[in-house]
Amino acid sequence: MLKLPQSYSDRKHFLIVGALVAIVTVALGFFLLAILPIKAQASMQAEPIKWLFQLHLWLIAFLFALVVVFMLYALFVFRRRKNDDSEGEHFEGNTALEVIWTVVPLVLVVIFSFIGLRTLQDATSGGDEVQVKAEGFQWSWAFSYPNGVTSAEMVLPVNKPALITLQARDVIHSFWVAEWGPKQDLVPGMTTSLHITPTKVGEFQLKCAELCGLSHWSMAATVRVVPEEEYTAWMDAKLAEQNLQTASR
């Protein structure tokens, strides 16, 4: 059985706690990665988000371990023994320590502000090779392309930077395809926009992420990301179909 030192300032305490913090950080880091499987991974803008999210998880794992291991260790080692009526050690603080645990977090804040700024740029920028307008209204979506094609589903070619312009007809909505990462509100009286470069072919759900009344929960639309040839074919078919309708009217 390990004999723990009794004096509160014994260096052995800090060696033991340090080792435990390291072990717990690693275990907790992998645990958090497992229980917080971030869904954003199907667009170029999702990648920096996922990267920063997982970087955060490691920092969280370390800080959680630091506080909780210290706390649990103290609770165990410094618990009052039976028939011990003495008071605790008398020390009122330590200015050097206080300065350290003010300055180190401050440095971390600067570092994360910098990382956050870079990641934000990556997650919100992109080209506009494809343009599509999404309109939100209680409680559905409508899409239109610059060539006049309108659609109830949104179709985008894979790996092409798309600029999605957003308009709300009635109340505030929010455009969110979880797999793509970022979301953006649609605000009456404004036009907002979102850059998305989809990197995975497939069918996704666009969902409204801002409570917008009775049927907010079901305000969704299908979003399809297809190979470029398929996109062109779809667009041609739509053009033909909608021109035909216009002509025969």
Partner: peptide, 20 residues
């Protein structure tokens, strides 16, 4: 996070060496 961190670390300092 900075002043909040000060609180957490000060709580740990308060527990350390006590008769809990």
């Amino acid at each position: 996070a900075v002043p909040t961190g000060v609180k957490f670390f000060s709580w740990l300092g308060t527990l350390w060496g006590g008769r809990l």
